[in-house]
Nucleic acid binder design. Structure first.
Length: 428
RNA sequence: GGAGACGUGGCCGAGAGGUCGAAGGCACUCCCCUGCUAAGGGAGCAUACCGGCUUAAACCGGUAUCGAGGGUUCGAAUCCCUCCGUCUCCGCCA
């Protein structure tokens, strides 16, 4: 959520910056609503002030044992007008709030200007894609012999789910353990375990609601109530600080969480239908930081580096992409995507997304720090995948495949697999 | 699932229809005193929003907020209803 003051005081430049990321702000609608809000709010508050003053007088008069009939008569005349004003104001505040909640974040000055993903900028590359002296298979073919079973998953649930068995399931688990250990031991994150079902408030806090409800899975719960399945650990972890005022000395908060993520993938029919690149359910190790406003851009670089460290330790070639203004996510002010090399697709594919949300989420959540002057200031929130576990598994299978159908395991992973060096198809 | 108790500011904790945004304490900020650390005295100190003044801040006036939402009333932290949550006991259970 943007600060409504920015819209009031600086509408022109806000509109221009939003246009840069492809969002057209309905200026006229905003101005109309604002003008009406102003008169209605002023009137309502004046009436309330009048009523409060009279009621106070009644109390004083009665406590002195005098007759308050005249005052009571006067306040009675206020009732209807006050009620009408309050209702009109309330019904106006809803569309105004909806409008505000639907406006995306402003891109940071350092974000490359562009229309779509074609205008994203490559920042750096690491690692050399391996040359193969045999026909390369994608992870679906490599995985099939190792326990990756989409048919079984289709029977159980439908499309966009996977079943993993044996060594492959263990490798999947090992990847998550490995990532958690690196981030907690080497990067200073605190591991957290969080709910996978959250309420609407939490989804609003991080920006998934109200605009992206169709991307979420819901679980009914009583009348008009429902849980939402988290699309990322970002939601529960970031919301830990919702409605909190923390002391400056407690900052920064650095959390890492391993959770499943659930996405409806509505609107992506036909994309990545093969394999486990795009699933309704996938595991992810997520990094979340809450920091002082002045620190957030330094921390974005740091956090991105933490995610990169995993790829380096696994020896997976990747590149870092700065998303352009037009490709930025709704809540983000700046985002780096990490793209891992996938030989099976002969392409770099997203495996991590690291974003600085500045105060956009904190404003929705009212997540604040008590600053030096004692005034609470909004925190800045950041997060990044460190990494998407399923896609990391895909990358390991494809990059480390051997001609005989086995997969050599990256050394960093071996301690998590009892020293195993090669994952080989089970003998028939 | 059954029975009961409770939800107040950064924290603890009073208040039980009226000049209550809320006593007191802790923490914090400023000042004074004190030859270190410690202690003492005074003042300040919730949040959001609106308006005024202003480049802005500070400041001033107002409104709302005592778990959330409704209701009763001229007036609700206080009374009533619904929901959410916490705690205790019983039952059940990974």
């Amino acid at each position: 959520m943007l600060d409504i003051q920015w819209l009031r005081n600086d509408l022109e430049s806000v509109t221009a910056r939003l246009a840069g990321r492809g969002y057209r702000l309905d200026v006229a609608a905003f101005q109309d609503l604002e003008a009406e809000r102003k008169t209605l709010q002023t009137r309502t508050q004046e009436l309330q002030a009048r009523r409060n003053a009279l009621s106070r007088q009644i109390g004083i008069t009665k406590s002195k044992g005098k007759d308050a009939a005249a005052l009571l008569a006067e306040v009675a005349g206020l009732g209807e007008a006050l009620k009408a004003a309050e209702e009109a104001l309330a019904s106006l505040q809803k569309p105004l709030a909806d409008l505000l909640m639907g406006i995306p974040n402003l891109p940071h000055q350092s974000v490359p200007v562009g229309k779509d993903s074609d205008d994203n900028a490559e920042v750096r590359r690491w690692g050399e894609p391996r040359r193969f002296d045999f026909p390369v298979h994608d992870h679906v073919d490599v995985g099939a012999a190792l326990g990756l079973d989409f048919e079984a998953a289709a029977k159980l649930s439908g499309a966009r789910f996977a079943v993993m068995k044996g060594g492959l399931a263990r490798l999947h688990r090992a990847l998550a353990q490995f990532m958690l250990d690196v981030h907690t031991r080497e990067h200073g994150y605190t591991e957290v375990y969080v709910p996978y079902l959250v309420n609407a408030e939490s989804m609003r806090g991080t920006g998934q609601l109200p605009k992206f409800e169709e991307d979420l899975f819901q679980v009914p719960r009583g009348e008009g109530e429902r849980f939402y399945l988290i699309p990322t650990a970002e939601v529960p972890v970031t919301n830990l600080l919702r409605d909190a005022i923390v002391e400056e000395g407690e900052l920064p908060f650095k959390f890492v969480a391993h959770t499943p993520c659930f996405r409806s993938e509505a609107g992506s029919y036909g994309r990545d239908t093969r394999g486990m690149i795009r699933q309704h359910q996938f595991d992810k190790v997520e990094l979340v930081q809450m920091v002082k406003a002045t620190e957030s851009y330094r921390v974005l670089e740091e956090l991105t580096g933490h995610a990169e460290a995993i790829l380096r330790k696994l020896g997976l070639p990747y590149r870092v992409i700065a998303l352009c203004t037009g490709d930025l996510g709704f809540s983000s002010a700046k985002t780096y995507d990490l793209e891992v090399w996938l030989p099976g697709q002969n392409a770099y594919r997203e495996i991590s997304s690291c974003s600085n949300f500045e105060a956009f989420q904190a404003r929705r959540m009212q997540a604040r720090v008590r600053g030096e002057k004692g005034k609470p200031e909004l925190l800045h929130t950041l997060n990044g995948s460190g990494l998407a576990v399923g896609r990391t598994l895909v990358a390991v299978l494809e990059n480390y495949q051997n001609a005989d159908g086995s997969v050599t395991l990256p050394e960093a992973l071996r301690p998590y697999l009892g020293g195993l060096e090669v994952l080989a198809p089970a003998k028939k």
